[in-house]
Amino acid sequence: MFTRKLRIATLVAASLFGMGAAQATDITGAGSSFVYPVLSKWSAKYAEATGNKLNYQSVGSGAGIAQIKEGTIDFGASDAPMSSEDLTKFGLGQFPSVVGGIVPVVNLQGIAAGQLKLDGKLLADIYMGKVARWSDPAVAALNPGVKIPDVKITVVHRSDGSGTSFNFTNYLSKVSPEWASKVKFGTAVEWPAGVGGKGNEGVAQYVRQIPGSIGYVEYAYAKKNNIAFTQLQNAAGKWVQPNAETFGAAAGTADWAGAKDFNVIMTNAPGEQAWPITATTWIIMYKKSKNPSHTKVAFEFFKWSQEKGQPDAASLDYVALPATLTSKIQAYWASDFK
């Protein structure tokens, strides 16, 4: 009787021990929904390769920052960079993770994707409600020879606080002094004109429903929903189409060297080929880890994503970071994180 119990106990202990040894480290992160699709794809691939799982909750950048400050997760992800003072105050560090593009989309009869040309000033004037019809001379001046229907412009923006809005309004602030002083930029602003759709899908759907409307969505949504995106004139004065090359060019030419803690919003980047509304999501972690074994896996994961993540990122219309940037990030890891 006794021996039997003992035997069972030994068995149970052995199996528990065995499980413990085989169990991989699960790391948790939370924040931006902008990176959620690519992070979840990467984490599936990474789990196949290493057995380590990544658990990511797309609860919004604000909530991600709050949770990393409380130390309940291994990393936070935010669409807006934290200031260096804040990072120092909480002992945190941050680095970019992946690059994506935000594109203006229009619903105009007879206008195909990539056909209409807009520059920053015109885009800002449209979103201010100052240019209210497509027949406005300012539109025609940029699009000679293109037949644009004479309809009222309906502006569509995001109703929810989002990194997409953050980068879009940041771009408008950089190219329009009036926008910068009146509306400013942020995850949510007081929109001077238009209606608000919830999420990328809400904006995409509104634009499809309203003739003469203009909105802005992540590139993947415009492609998936077959909505006509526009060309933009970048800071170098060149007309560019949104695609992986122009997003990558923006990430490569943004002024990372001059910034501490990668605190650069890469809209209106100077490169010849740079798409002007390119965005990234910053990963925020403790410089002195509270849970070293988890942090180690997290770094391995992001290193893996930089080296092997490009095909998966491309399949979702994101762009992995250019090599010039990843070397800077890895140097930052080595110097700032313990």
């Binding site: 919004g60 950048s61 604000g62 109703s159 606080g161 995850t187 007081e190 238009g194 209606v195």
Partner: peptide, 28 residues
């Protein structure tokens, strides 16, 4: 429609308390 514009019209867009919270809480 999620706009913050005061209007008596029932055909205009508007906001409600619950939708405003749902829209903005994550990033606020």
């Amino acid at each position: 429609g999620n706009t913050f514009k005061l209007t008596p019209s029932i055909l205009e867009t508007g906001s409600s308390i619950a939708s405003t919270i749902a829209n903005q809480f994550g990033e606020a």
